[in-house]
């Protein structure tokens, strides 16, 4: 669907968590490349660093060393909200105070799109996932 994809590169990314004065390596020197349009699966046992790797790509965690590059641009120090990376949370992370419509529209409103554009985009997405007609409900009423 996306006409242009981006290349993601991790270069020697490491992350340690300090817990009770003991360092635990969550991610140890990971280097990988994801080509544009490629679908990549990280597979492994609990606690092997899948989540931490993804969180560092999105910018929720700061790597101790190494670099994260998107289309060869270093985004390691870039704040989360400027990376433009989609993220699906395990626990949905829906905004409980917003309706279904406003939940979907949130990112578009933050980007200050016009009302008509937002309406059109949200309705298209709701139709895609089989939720038209539920737009005015709150997320905990589904």
């Amino acid at each position: 669907m996306s006409a242009t994809g981006a290349r993601l590169r991790l270069v020697s990314v490491s992350k340690r968590f300090v817990r009770a004065e003991q360092g635990v390596a969550a991610v140890d020197d990971v280097t990988l490349t994801v080509e544009p349009g490629e679908l990549l699966t990280l597979l492994g046992p609990s606690g092997c660093g899948k989540t931490t790797t993804l969180r560092m790509v999105a910018g929720f965690e700061q790597p101790d060393s190494g670099r994260v590059l998107i289309d060869e641009q270093d985004v390691t120090g870039l704040m989360v909200y400027r990376r433009n990376i989609g993220f699906v949370f395990q626990n949905y992370a829906l905004f409980p105070h917003l309706t279904v419509f406003e939940n979907v529209a949130y990112g578009l409103r933050v980007k200050r799109l016009g009302a008509a554009v937002i309406r059109e985009k949200v309705e298209r997405v709701l139709a895609l996932v089989g939720l038209p007609g539920h737009a005015r409900r709150f997320s905990n009423q589904l």
């Binding site: 999105a58 910018g59 929720f60 704040m79 989360v80 909200y81 400027r82 990376r83 433009n84 990376i85 989609g86 993220f87 949370f89 395990q90 626990n91 992370a93 829906l94 905004f95 409980p96 949130y106 990112g107 409103r109 933050v110 980007k111």
Partner: peptide
């Protein structure tokens, strides 16, 4: 859940926008 704030941030909201909205 903190992931609600992270969701907002990943959708492009700065911390003050996340706080307000």
């Amino acid at each position: 859940d903190p992931s609600i704030e992270e969701a907002s941030a990943s959708l492009g909201a700065r911390r003050d926008v996340t706080f307000r909205r």
